[in-house]
């Protein structure tokens, strides 16, 4: 993230999580989850999932590949929530139990946009 953009009006409560969770690529967001501690992941998850439906609805007004900067940032944060959910809803810990970190898995190409 080069230029500091803020979230759309009405989503200020999510602002503290932007820096950690709204990475520009899948790799960055996956890294955020894999390297975070569980308490921090849960804090973000609880706040963000409560605003999830509203946030996605807000972003859905725009074409996926042509969102205004603030909506795109909000959407990236929601994609960060998807990553956080893997820790909360599947493993109960940041990564699959007993798996190495860091590791050699590299995402060469993610889904676009925000891949």
């Amino acid at each position: 993230m080069s230029v500091r953009t803020t979230l759309p009006l009405g989503f200020a409560d999510l602002e503290p999580f932007v820096e950690q969770w709204a990475g520009a690529t899948v790799d960055a967001r996956m890294y955020a989850r894999a390297s975070a501690d569980m308490a921090g992941i849960r804090r973000f998850y609880e706040v963000a999932v409560a605003r999830g439906a509203e946030a996605l609805e807000y972003c859905a007004q725009f074409p996926l590949d042509a969102m205004p900067d603030d909506a795109a940032l909000l959407f990236r944060l929601m994609l960060g929530l998807a990553q956080a959910s893997i820790a909360v809803e599947i493993h109960g810990q940041p990564r699959a139990p007993g798996t190495p970190w860091p590791n050699s898995i590299t995402l060469q190409r993610g889904p676009s946009p925000f891949g």
């Binding site: 899948v26 967001r29 996956m30 989850r33 996605l56 996926l64 959407f75 929601m78 994609l79 998807a82 990553q83 959910s85 893997i86 599947i90 493993h91 990564r95 699959a96 798996t99 898995i105 995402l107 993610g110 889904p111 946009p113 925000f114």
Partner: peptide, 13 residues
């Protein structure tokens, strides 16, 4: 796109 993020995250796990 949100579904894909979940999918890719799960696959990587």
């Amino acid at each position: 796109r949100f579904q894909q993020e979940l999918y890719v995250g799960r696959v990587a796990e």
